[in-house]
Amino acid sequence: MKTTLDELQTLIAVVDTGALSRAADHLGLTVSAVSRTLGRLEEKLETTLLRRTTRRLELTEEGSAFLERARQIIACVDDAEEDLAARRERPAGRLRVDAASPFMLHAVVPLVAGYRARYPQVSLELTSNDGLIDLLEHRTDVAIRIGRLKDSTLHARSIGSCRLRVLAAPTYLERHGRPRNIAELGQHALLGFTQPAVLNEWPLPDVDDMPVRITPSVAASSGETLRQLALEGVGIVCLADYLTHRDRAEGRLIQLFPTRTLDVRQPIHAVYYRNTALTARIASFVNYLSEHWDASAGGCRANEATSGS
């Protein structure tokens, strides 16, 4: 496009005010600047838009037709700017959110109804990938990631953190007994992750007072799979509170070694690309998730201690 918005606005101002001097006052420009802008516009269009005499300005037939379209263009731009301003106050449009399936099921899904009630003009698309994804490739606006972040191309906003606990179902403990000390864990069926290895470091002190590293008897890639295995009494597991707080509250899972458990927490972040502006949609979702983290995760909140049980 050859023509600029400034040139269109100048033409409209000249016609509406009826004089270069009054248009210059309206636009905060000099008369010579207004005259040069009009001349440049006519040069680009290779058309005379205004006939100028010492006493008046008169639109040519081409100028009249062009002015009508110019007004429409400026009106569309004004509408778009007003719409964006409104969206900052009232988020709208599609928001694509990705999270690992356990977090999606136990932390995000319980909040969707409340979020939609507050922001009904935001259309949510929820996807679950247990591994790290390329946000651009998957057309994802914001992803929730658990653990330490490594990707420097991402912006990150802390949502909170969640404590890890070692747990077993009553049925497992009835059949196999409760381990009397941490060393006895090696005699039990232990449920762990296939990867990464750091997830198999449990918040119990070894002989050097460091988190003990276990070798799983049964390994899975998903925390939800491990939770279900633990509920079935297959073995002892270590999971974050957002996955298990209801199970503990209702007695389906029991914490082992509550007084020996180290205060180890998984950080939780909302991430988006650095070259992506923090739109009102992203901000509304991240703020809502952070605001309701206590309710959605059974007492896990950033910078707050979680009571042992």
Rank of each mutant, 00 (worst) to 15 (best):
A117C: 03
V166E: 12
S152H: 01
M210Y: 07
A13K: 10
T4D: 02
P179A: 07
L191P: 01
L124T: 07
A86T: 09
T171Y: 00
P102Q: 03
T171V: 14
D208I: 09
V264S: 12
E43N: 14
A80G: 05
R87W: 00
V207I: 08
L136T: 08
V207Q: 14
I159Q: 03
A240T: 11
R94K: 13
T171P: 00
I214E: 09
G160A: 09
A19F: 03
A156K: 12
L262P: 00
V264I: 15
G28W: 01
V286Y: 04
L84C: 09
A280K: 02
E232V: 00
C300Q: 13
L57A: 07
I74C: 13
T4A: 08
Y172S: 08
R56K: 11
V31Q: 13
V77K: 06
R52S: 10
D16T: 07
R165H: 12
L111Y: 06
G299I: 10
R246K: 13
A85F: 09
S123I: 12
D206T: 10
H292M: 04
A305K: 05
L67Q: 01
G308I: 03
V122A: 05
T10H: 08
P267T: 02
N275G: 06
G192C: 07
A283V: 02
E291W: 05
G177A: 12
V198K: 08
S222K: 10
G192D: 04
V97Q: 02
